[in-house]
Amino acid sequence: MTSDYKFQNLSQKDMSFEEVFEHIIKFINKEPNGSYRLIFGTDSQIHTDHTLFITGIVIQRETKGAWACIRKVVIPRKMINLHERISYETSLTEEVVSLFTDEKKEKLIDLVLPNIYKGASFSIEGHIDIGSGRKNKTRIFVNEMVSRMESLGIEPKIKPDAFVASSYANRYTK
Score class of each variant (00 low, 15 high):
residue 163 F to T: 00
residue 147 S to N: 13
residue 16 S to C: 05
residue 49 D to I: 03
residue 148 R to E: 03
residue 44 S to N: 05
residue 78 K to V: 10
residue 75 I to Y: 15
residue 144 E to S: 03
residue 19 E to A: 15
residue 108 L to H: 01
residue 47 H to N: 11
residue 64 K to W: 09
residue 134 R to S: 14
residue 45 Q to F: 14
residue 90 T to P: 11
residue 45 Q to C: 02
residue 76 P to L: 08
residue 106 E to I: 13
residue 40 F to S: 06
residue 41 G to T: 06
residue 120 A to T: 01
residue 53 F to L: 06
residue 25 I to N: 04
residue 35 S to N: 08
residue 115 N to F: 15
residue 7 F to W: 12
residue 138 T to L: 07
residue 109 I to G: 10
residue 62 E to P: 04
residue 18 E to S: 09
residue 116 I to H: 02
residue 85 R to D: 10
residue 5 Y to G: 04
residue 48 T to H: 15
residue 86 I to H: 01
residue 70 I to F: 06
residue 51 T to R: 07
residue 43 D to C: 05
residue 104 K to T: 08
residue 172 Y to E: 06
residue 104 K to N: 13
residue 138 T to E: 00
residue 111 L to M: 07
residue 7 F to N: 05
residue 143 N to V: 07
residue 20 V to N: 03
residue 34 G to H: 05
residue 137 K to T: 13
residue 41 G to Q: 02
residue 141 F to I: 02
residue 65 G to R: 05
residue 31 E to S: 07
residue 151 S to Q: 14
residue 67 W to P: 00
residue 54 I to H: 11
residue 96 V to F: 01
residue 104 K to Q: 04
residue 94 E to H: 12
residue 129 D to N: 05
residue 158 I to G: 04
residue 113 L to S: 12
residue 99 L to H: 10
residue 59 I to D: 01
residue 51 T to A: 13
residue 150 E to T: 11
residue 14 D to S: 13
residue 140 I to T: 02
residue 66 A to N: 08
residue 67 W to Y: 07
residue 169 A to Y: 09
residue 107 K to S: 15
residue 170 N to W: 09
residue 165 A to W: 01
residue 124 I to F: 06
residue 40 F to G: 11
residue 69 C to K: 09
residue 19 E to R: 07
residue 4 D to Q: 12
residue 138 T to K: 08
residue 59 I to T: 10
residue 67 W to D: 05
residue 119 G to W: 00
residue 56 G to H: 06
residue 136 N to H: 08
residue 48 T to E: 10
residue 130 I to Y: 05
residue 164 V to C: 01
residue 109 I to C: 08
residue 51 T to L: 11
residue 104 K to M: 03
residue 114 P to M: 11
residue 92 L to C: 12
residue 85 R to M: 14
residue 81 N to I: 01
residue 80 I to W: 11
residue 33 N to D: 13
residue 35 S to E: 13
residue 64 K to F: 15
residue 87 S to M: 10
residue 154 I to E: 07
residue 21 F to P: 02
residue 39 I to Y: 00
residue 117 Y to Q: 14
residue 133 G to N: 01
residue 19 E to F: 06
